[in-house]
Design a protein around this nucleic acid. Structure first.
Length: 106
DNA sequence: CGTATGACGAGCC
DNA sequence: AGGCTCGCCATAC
């Protein structure tokens, strides 16, 4: 059910919005749900283009290793970490998250 | 319209 | 176990 009218990024955003509260997903997972398996890069790039006031829970998207990708801006990393902790998700000192516990099954 | 880039993933050394 | 390289494709210039 992909709306071709929507841009690839828009499709990714819609998929990310489906992540329930207190759960996290990976770029590859989002890419697969968005209908473009293997294109995890596009997911990351799409989220990269998001604004701070977006309604997309971009902070719930992490890499396949279960860790927060360290963005060029350390401030953004810390913001994501705090957002995740606000949802009851435990973030390791090494910016790692237990996907077995918080991973979204879809 | 061709080149470069990029919040990744998986494989290989 | 950890670090490096290649691949995939949409967007930017």
């Amino acid at each position: 059910m992909n709306n071709n009218r929507l841009s690839t990024y828009q499709t990714i955003y819609e998929t990310v919005r489906r992540i329930p509260w207190g759960r996290v997903s990976t770029y590859g997972q989002i890419a697969g749900l968005a209908g473009m398996p293997g294109q995890a890069r596009l997911v990351g790039y799409a989220l990269h283009s998001l604004a701070e006031d977006t309604d997309v829970p971009w902070h719930r998207v992490i890499n396949a290793k279960g860790g927060i990708s360290q963005l060029p801006d350390p401030d953004a990393c810390l913001r994501q970490k705090m957002l995740l902790q606000s949802e009851g998700i435990r973030v390791d000192e090494k910016w790692r998250i237990n996907l077995e516990l918080y991973g979204w099954k879809g």
